[in-house]
Design a binder for these strands. Structure first.
Length: 647
DNA sequence: AATTCTGTCCTC
DNA sequence: CTAAGAGGACAGAATT
């Protein structure tokens, strides 16, 4: 790599003003330092609490290392921004810092981290610059130098730091040439195009954050805390009054006898011990270990109707309050940004399916109750909240081309779940959908749950489990569903076969996104192993079939689910891209902001007089994005103007 | 003492 | 012939 080192160090404005770059692809990287001393760890990464010290620009043949403490790169950045494609690793970082410090939004980007992730989707790879450089180019990137910028203050750069800066320009170019080949080979050009645009959406969202009302949040937290405490006391009282001596002890001192229950009710293990002592405790297959184990799972405990039913129901209520005081309690206030007073989440752009995720904090699993009332429109602003109506169901209808589903949507027949119910249950066949909804809510509920489970590749047992009905009944509903929608059954078996025929799951034909299966081609090996196995004793069972079918069925289920979930993800991404384009085109970036994405939902904040406009545009962009993928039945979205987050 | 694993819950 | 959509946060337990 050193053969590419050819850098100019710039610490005078005149030198910077003379820089001429004519290349189309220009590398960009940024080193930042603490701006304050009081915000601890976040400084360095967060644009508000850190500041640029070094800005590196350039190409494989020449690198400009700019001391950002001494010169202002704004003019050069603005000039280049009009004509170049910026190259870098994790450009969302540069995007946010350049926006904050120089008011520059990177326009055309090529992010080697995201392109790498797109080309290795599903494979759980290390996408850090060091990881990718090692894998793609067999280059070792030193990382301890980066940390040295954190506390550099006004000290001059040493040679090591400057060369490190130049290498951070060179390495992404070397990676890029490998990735371009991969993208071509994997036919992922369209996915890359979408994700490069979407990166900027996430940059804007993370930078802006969501307005938040701590007072409202605290009220909710306090209410839940009271509930938590009182339920905990009730549980303790039960143990003492039942005289289950094994689970409490009297602590004697001179003046009083305090009774202490030894069960920590927040510990599932301890509760399991107690429930077993009482003579009941359900068992279920663990989601993580996939083994049968004792559990205090809500669904399992709800099935219990024995003599301790009262206790169990108090415990279930307690558990509900538990998460409300932990994850969604006072602790959550730590996420309020010390400078903006808002909540800024980090998003992961490429998941296995193509969806995104949110963390620190996760803004995609805030309870859809009064917790969301704390996410407010600030004074003078409104929120525009929009979501797709039946996004995944409509995607499935378009993908499967099932004629009954299409008929339903094309004719706008009304309530979907009633329609499914009337298809599944013979006795409802002659009734109108309104009648089904009105008088057969149980069957409608079954149909709803069945549709949900089946969309995700579930079978009879899944339905049975979700609804608490017998497996036989679940199986009956399952087969009735496919009998009612024969096109769906055909599509599903095709999707299963397809998943087994290639080393990846093909998500959609617009982006051609792919999700590689980690264990492939292990599945073939497993099959051979099972087929070639010879019993050493008569009647011995072949243990390899189990491993084979386990993997095969997982692959098949993913083959059903990923295309639906992943296409949905791409559609929402595209909608957000269109909306961002619109508001930048109109010069509204200071009036309207995207604030959060929750899979089929887009949230924006808007100045009051633009609210109606923003709502309309949001709906338009979401529909337009839907039209790109959903060609038979359109995918529509509904937005509303609200004072706090509501969905 | 610090890190990793497991169980459980919330979202779509 | 099995296990059953995608994620992240937290508490407690296990492991180092």
């Amino acid at each position: 790599m050193n053969e590419y080192l050819n850098y100019v160090f710039i610490e005078k404005q005149e030198e910077l003003d003379q820089v001429q770059i004519t290349d189309l692809y220009v590398g960009i990287d940024l080193e930042t330092t603490r701006k304050y001393e009081k915000y601890g760890e976040m400084e360095g990464l967060d644009p508000y609490t850190s500041k640029p010290v070094m800005i590196q620009l350039g190409t494989l043949s020449k690198q400009y290392i700019i001391d950002a403490r001494k010169v202002d790169p704004k003019a050069l950045l603005k000039k280049l921004n009009k004509k170049v494609i910026w190259v870098g690793h994790n450009l969302k970082f540069e995007y946010k810092h350049l926006l904050h410090n120089y008011g520059v939004r990177l326009e055309r980007v090529y992010d080697t981290m995201i392109v790498y992730q797109i080309n290795h989707c599903g494979l759980d790879k290390n996408a850090s610059l060091a990881g990718v450089a090692k894998e793609c180019c067999d280059i070792i990137v030193p990382k301890d130098v980066r940390l040295s910028f954190l506390s550099i203050r006004d000290l001059p750069f040493i040679k090591e730091q400057i060369e490190y800066g130049a290498k951070d320009i060179i390495v992404p170019f070397l990676i890029k040439s490998k990735l371009d080949y991969l993208t071509e080979k994997n036919d992922l050009g369209e996915t890359v195009k979408l994700e490069m645009e979407f990166l900027k959406v996430l940059g804007d969202i993370e930078y802006k954050g969501m307005a938040f009302d701590p007072k409202r949040w605290k009220e909710v937290a306090a209410k839940n805390q009271v509930k938590f405490n009182s339920l905990q006391q009730k549980l303790n009282r039960f143990v003492i009054e039942s005289d289950h001596v094994k689970f409490f002890k009297k602590q004697m001192d001179l003046f009083s006898a305090e009774i202490k229950v030894s069960i920590s009710w927040t510990s599932s293990r301890q509760v399991i011990k107690y429930f077993k002592y009482l003579g009941f405790c359900p068992q279920a297959v663990s989601k993580t270990t996939k083994k049968l184990a004792y559990t205090v799972d809500k669904k399992e405990l709800s099935k219990y109707h024995g003599q301790y039913k009262e206790l169990v129901s108090i415990y279930l209520e307690f558990k509900e309050a538990e998460q409300a005081v932990t994850t969604f309690g006072e602790d959550f206030l730590k996420y309020i940004h010390p400078i903006t007073g808002r909540i800024h989440s980090d998003y992961r752009q490429i998941l296995n399916t193509g969806r995104i995720s949110s963390n620190n904090p996760n803004l995609q699993n805030i309870p859809a109750d009064d917790h969301r009332e704390a996410f407010i429109a600030p004074k003078g602003f409104k929120l525009a909240n929009a979501d797709y109506s039946g996004q995944e169901q409509i995607i499935l209808a378009n993908k499967s081309k099932d004629k009954d589903l299409l008929f339903f949507y094309k004719n706008g027949l009304g309530d979907m779940h009633s329609f499914v119910a009337s298809k599944i249950f013979e006795e409802l066949k002659e009734l109108s959908l309104a009648e089904v909804k009105e008088n057969h809510s149980e069957e409608r509920q079954t149909a709803k749950a069945a549709g949900f489970a089946i969309n995700y590749g579930g079978v009879g047992k899944t339905i049975a489990n979700n609804l608490g009905i017998s497996i036989e009944e679940g199986d009956r509903v399952y087969s009735a569903y496919f009998k009612a929608f024969p096109g769906l059954g055909k599509y599903f078996s095709k999707a299963k076969k397809l998943a087994l025929s290639q080393p990846y799951i093909f998500i959609d034909s617009v982006t051609k996104r792919k999700s590689w299966f980690k264990k492939y081609p292990l599945i073939e090996e497993l099959k051979n192993k099972a087929a070639n196995w010879v019993a050493s004793v008569e009647d011995e069972k072949n243990p390899h079939w189990s491993a084979y079918f386990k993997l095969k069925s997982k692959l098949e289920r993913n083959g059903l689910n990923y295309p639906i979930q992943g296409e949905a993800g791409s559609i929402t991404k595209k909608a957000a891209v269109l909306f961002r384009e619109w508001l930048l085109m109109e010069g509204l970036e200071d009036d309207i902001y995207l604030t959060n994405l929750v899979h089929d939902e887009i949230n924006a904040e808007t100045v009051e007089d633009m609210a109606i406009n923003a709502k309309g545009e949001l709906e338009r962009c979401m529909k337009e994005a839907g039209d790109i993928w959903c060609k038979i039945v359109p995918l529509n979205a509904e937005a509303k103007i609200v004072n706090y987050w509501s969905h």
